[in-house]
Computed example of a mutant assay.
Amino acid sequence: MGMPSINIIFRELAKTFEQRNDNGIVALVLANNAGMNPKEYRPGDDLDSSIAKDAKTQIQFAMEGGREKPQKVICYFCQAEYADLDTVLDELDNVKFDYLTFGSELQEEQKTKVMKWIKETRESGKKIKAVLANAKADNEGIINYTTESVTVNGIEYEADNFCSRIAGILAGTPLTMSCTYTVLDDVESCTKLSKKEMDEKIDAGEFIVFRDGDYIRVARGINSLTTVSDTKTDDFKKIKMIDVMDHVSTDLTDTIKNNWLGQYPNNYDNKCLLLANCQEYLDGLVSRTILSSASIEIDIEGNKKYLESKNEDTVNMTEDQIKKALTGENVFLSSQMGILDAMENFNIDIVV
């Protein structure tokens, strides 16, 4: 029997998807600061004087944001070289955040451990992501930042020391926007790449920044996913689309946990009340131009399979009878949603 389950499955049939809400939260793990309790900072907050200078820089990077600021940055302080990484990951299991990142270099085995943890955590239903340097993960939950170096205030930062800045940009990007071409006002220069090299890196699932005239910009808001399938199409490569999916999943799951699970008899009338609750939320996302359309209904096929598993004869049942049938402790719903992408590619035909 196990624990009660809430499974929200997102599939792209042709143009089906989902959504999100407020700006995100960054979980920033810092080494060489063992013994300090976790701290939360919001943009504009003063940092504790006890925090080391390098760690302060990383926190400030994360709070800088991009289009907007992140909600907050939650800081976890580790031993040297992240020796207690396992302990921190265990603590983060029960912390609400959107983007995990680190303030300095991870060893390869540590990076592999973090990627595995992110993938497993996402599969369990907690939709988090990580920004890591040079992490070829082929997964929508991992952003692979690979720009070799950037210069801020005359100081050069390698990729491992700039992931916090990228995480802050992503967490500070509203759901109606993408981070593509976000300007990094604080960055003076970055590793130079040719157009061909940038195209190749983006196609390989690498998140990079580049010089565009007087500005340093995000090249394209993509994650590390490169392998597509019938259930994971090209849209899954886009950070914006995944952010929307993740936030819809989280919002609906939290709503059901807090307001429905175990609190109502499982009959057709109460299922209709639940559907109305979910539809109202989805309609709000449509009105905010996060979704183009959205609907949710009882999953007829799910009900049918359940009834047949209980040796019920569904052959002579009408669709309406299957829809209204009792399904024990299980509620089967299906949703179709269209996620609005941001404008990124422009073709202008000028005739003179």
Rank of each mutant, 00 (worst) to 15 (best):
D84Y: 04
Y76W: 07
L85A: 00
D45W: 10
D48A: 15
T101D: 08
G65S: 09
S50V: 15
G44D: 11
F77E: 12
E64Y: 04
D86W: 07
C75Q: 07
A83C: 06
L106C: 07
D46W: 03
D46M: 09
Q71L: 07
E105T: 15
P43D: 04
E81P: 02
G66V: 10
T87Y: 10
D45K: 12
R67N: 13
Y41L: 06
Q58R: 08
S49M: 06
K96I: 15
T101Y: 01
Q60I: 15
K56A: 00
I74H: 11
K56N: 02
F61R: 10
I51Y: 06
P43M: 03
K69T: 11
Y41S: 10
G44Y: 05
L92D: 02
F77G: 07
A62D: 07
E64V: 12
D86C: 12
D98F: 00
D93T: 13
L100S: 09
D90G: 11
E40G: 13
D54C: 04
M63G: 08
T57P: 03
G65V: 12
R67E: 14
D84H: 06
T101Q: 03
K72H: 06
K96N: 14
V95L: 05
T101C: 05
Q107F: 05
R67H: 14
S49H: 04
K72V: 09
D54L: 08
E105C: 08
F97I: 15
V73R: 01
S104R: 04
D84L: 10
K69E: 05
P38K: 05
L92P: 02
E91M: 12
G65I: 08
N37E: 15
D84F: 05
G44H: 05
L47W: 00
S49W: 02
Q60L: 15
A80W: 00
Y82L: 06
A52T: 10
Q60M: 15
F97E: 12
P70R: 01
S50N: 14
V95F: 01
Y41F: 08
F97H: 11
G65E: 10
A80I: 03
G44S: 12
T101L: 02
R42Q: 13
Y99Q: 07
A55F: 00
A62F: 00
L89G: 02
S49V: 12
E64F: 02
S104M: 03
R42V: 14
